[in-house]
């Protein structure tokens, strides 16, 4: 009697694995993947919020002196901002009148797509290279290169990869995440910003002749087709300038803490 060979379970597993890979790259598994992602999205969102709350409470500074110093600094900033705000509204009003007179098109017309952050991802667990994963993707009209802003309108990064139901966002502080930016100084200096160590943003190769000051606001320059002009990126925290060097560089401080982002908006130009 001929004995039937027992099926090798390892070969079966390998065959299933290869089949899954082929079906994925062939696009056959896409409806299944989208369904799974949609099903776990609420759970994913809640779990990320839970983890984020733990992270936020861990990072809370409780030293009294530090808090008092921070309050003092913020009060001084509020006073300066109140004066700037008054001047801003005057300029805005004048600008509106001039636009009407000259029949200018409003170039700040853009819509946004609200998204929840559901995970952080990077090859290695490091503060330097963690991208955010959001729960909106191609289906919501997203594509690579779009700017992502916080609920306060500050640019936090841009989309670097898109799937049907999710997208990956690189933070402005991540090395390799570059944005076309402009300084709100006299010369309206333009350049590329790049992340440094997951903590700050740098703008290099600024000509020595350009005058840059600490606290100059940095905005998107609009030179990138996907990112409109005028979105706030940060403010200059330090200027590195040597008289014998051809270039100078600026360190830019983000205006908010990227560790506690849970809701963001994607700017659709």
């Amino acid at each position: 009697m001929v004995k039937l060979k027992r099926k090798n379970p390892f070969l079966i597993l390998l065959a299933i694995f290869l089949l899954i890979i082929i079906l994925h790259w062939g696009g056959v598994l896409q409806p299944v993947e989208r369904l799974i992602f949609k099903a776990i999205r609420p759970l994913s969102n809640d779990l990320y919020l839970w983890g984020n709350n733990i992270s936020a409470s861990y990072e809370e500074r409780t030293e009294k002196e530090e808090l008092l110093a921070r309050i003092e600094k913020l009060e001084a900033e509020v006073k300066t901002l109140a004066i700037d705000r008054a001047a801003y509204y005057e300029v805005l009003s004048e600008n509106e009148k001039l636009r009407k007179q000259l029949d200018f098109v409003d170039n700040h017309n853009f819509s946004t797509v609200l998204a929840h952050v559901i995970a952080q991802e990077g090859l290695f667990t490091t503060a330097q290279r963690r991208d955010l994963i959001i729960d909106k993707g191609r289906q919501a009209g997203l594509r690579e290169g779009l700017a992502v802003i916080s609920d306060g309108g500050i640019v936090i990064g841009k989309i670097v990869a898109v799937e049907e139901e999710s997208a990956r966002v690189c933070l402005t502080t991540t090395p390799g995440c570059q944005l076309a930016v402009s300084l709100q100084n006299e010369a309206r200096t333009q350049g590329l910003s790049d992340g440094r160590l997951g903590l700050t943003i740098a703008m290099d190769y600024i000509p020595q002749l350009e005058k840059i000051a600490v606290s100059d606001i940095v905005i998107t320059s609009g030179l990138s087709s996907e990112i409109p002009r005028g979105l706030v990126v940060g403010k200059v925290a330090e200027v590195k300038s040597e008289s014998n060097e051809v270039w100078q560089s600026a360190l830019i401080e983000p205006l908010l803490n990227f560790n506690n982002l849970t809701i963001v908006s994607v700017v659709l130009p």
Binding site: L47, I118, A119, Q120
Partner: peptide, 14 residues
């Protein structure tokens, strides 16, 4: 899902 969402949101040590 836990590994992807919850643990990635924790402080670095987590």
């Amino acid at each position: 899902v836990f590994q992807f969402s919850f643990f990635s949101a924790l402080p670095l040590w987590g």
